[in-house]
Amino acid sequence: MVMQVDGRRRRHSAAERRAVLARFAASEVGVAAFCRSESISVGTLRRWQSLNDRDDAPRAAAPGFVDLGALGGGGALTIELDLGGGLVLRVRRG
């Protein structure tokens, strides 16, 4: 693959990136040699690998509406939402 076209950087489609990663996985050469043969940098290959890993990661389903009234009458209730980054939202009733 050619990295530059008319002196400009070439953009690779997602399908092209996956094909390069598949060839790398099947190859028996080192990273540097493989990248030279594909005319890409080692950093580019590593970035594509991380993007591919992120795309393959399972995603949590978006929660729907939760009717808290259906959880019971007047008893105590605590709901915790993990917002990420160490933030937790707690709502207590009762």
Rank of each mutant, 00 (worst) to 15 (best):
R93G: 02
G64L: 03
C35F: 00
G30S: 05
G43H: 06
A62C: 11
R90V: 07
T78C: 11
V5E: 15
G43Y: 02
L77Y: 06
G43I: 02
E28A: 13
I40A: 03
V42G: 06
A25W: 07
A70P: 01
F34L: 03
R54A: 07
R90T: 12
T78Q: 11
A61W: 02
E16D: 12
D6P: 00
L68T: 13
A19D: 10
M3H: 10
F24Q: 12
W48V: 02
A26G: 10
L45K: 12
M1V: 08
A62G: 13
G64E: 09
A62T: 15
F24W: 15
I79Y: 07
M3E: 11
R9S: 10
V20K: 00
A62P: 14
R59C: 04
A70D: 14
G74K: 15
P63A: 01
A32H: 14
D6R: 12
V20Q: 01
E80G: 08
S13P: 02
R36Y: 04
G86V: 01
D82S: 04
E16M: 10
G30L: 01
L71P: 02
S39Y: 06
E16R: 12
L87M: 15
R46K: 11
D82T: 01
A76N: 06
R59I: 02
A33H: 09
I79L: 10
R11G: 10
L51M: 14
R59V: 08
A33I: 00
V2N: 14
R11P: 05
G64P: 02
R46F: 00
T78Y: 07
D56S: 14
V5N: 13
R90P: 13
A57F: 06
L87S: 11
G85M: 03
R93P: 00
A32L: 14
G73Y: 08
A32W: 08
G84D: 04
R17H: 07
S39F: 05
E80P: 01
S41F: 01
Q4E: 14
G72L: 03
D53S: 08
G86I: 00
V88T: 13
G64K: 09
T78W: 09
E16F: 07
Q4A: 06
R36W: 04
L77M: 14
G74Q: 10
V66S: 08
G64V: 01
L89D: 15
